[in-house]
């Protein structure tokens, strides 16, 4: 399977097995880091402005402004992303999000309102950065779970029903996210 390099913002860039970039970057490397976001942002502009040629008079400055905003944020690590696993994740996640919405809607309109809320802690095996952020956001859309805190490896999750089998639900999600980023599943991965 062809592998893709991804920036920490979850966007993928073509390339083969690049070394992880050092934390302090030279300006040139920084410029190169911005090439891929620039392409994505230009595509967004093109889609919005219907690819009209004269629109780039404003689109160019818009992309530059957006890239400048990106440089205000602390630099982040790159991740390798497996496109096929990402697609599979998207499909699975869409089904889970629908399940989550149906579940909470039924609880809301049911006369008995079956709730047994509480907090639980989860120790994630996913490394810091995009995978962990993706986990926290995905947890919030899964049935009955909402991420309330992420501190290092510890993820605090609010549950609509505290008897939910966290290990099964979140474990499965972690394995799928690990697959998206080509990470060994279930193992401790150093950040």
């Amino acid at each position: 399977m062809k592998s893709f390099q991804a920036l920490d913002d979850g966007l993928a860039v073509a390339g083969q097995h690049r070394k992880p970039a050092p934390l302090v970057r030279m300006p040139r490397q920084r410029l190169r880091r911005l090439t891929f976001p620039a392409v994505i942002l230009a595509v967004i502009w093109g889609v919005l402005a219907d690819w009209r040629l004269e629109s780039w008079l404003f689109g160019g400055p818009a992309v530059l402004l957006a890239l400048w905003l990106l440089t205000l944020l602390p630099p982040a690590r790159r991740w390798t992303m497996a496109p096929l696993a990402a697609l599979r994740f998207a499909g699975w996640f869409a089904v889970q999000a629908v399940r989550g919405a149906v579940d909470v809607s039924l609880r809301a309109v049911s006369p008995r309102m079956p709730l047994n809320p509480g907090f639980r802690s989860w120790r994630t095996t996913l490394p810091e950065g995009t995978p962990r952020i993706m986990l926290a956001n995905a947890v919030s859309l899964l049935p009955g779970t909402l991420s309330a805190e992420i501190e290092g490896q510890r993820l605090v999750i609010h549950l609509l029903d505290c008897h939910t089998d966290l290990a099964a639900e979140i474990g499965r999600l972690e394995a799928r996210i690990a697959a998206v980023f080509n990470l060994p599943a279930g193992k401790e991965t150093a950040a």
Partner: peptide, 29 residues
């Protein structure tokens, strides 16, 4: 219908965290 269910959840659920479940999931879908 999901927006309505989310709003019902917001009004009926006992605490802030449960209400957030209703808003993030039901309104999102």
């Amino acid at each position: 219908l999901f927006f309505i269910a989310g709003t019902v959840g917001l009004l009926r659920f006992p605490d802030l965290y449960c209400q957030l479940h209703a808003l993030t999931k039901a309104d999102g879908l």
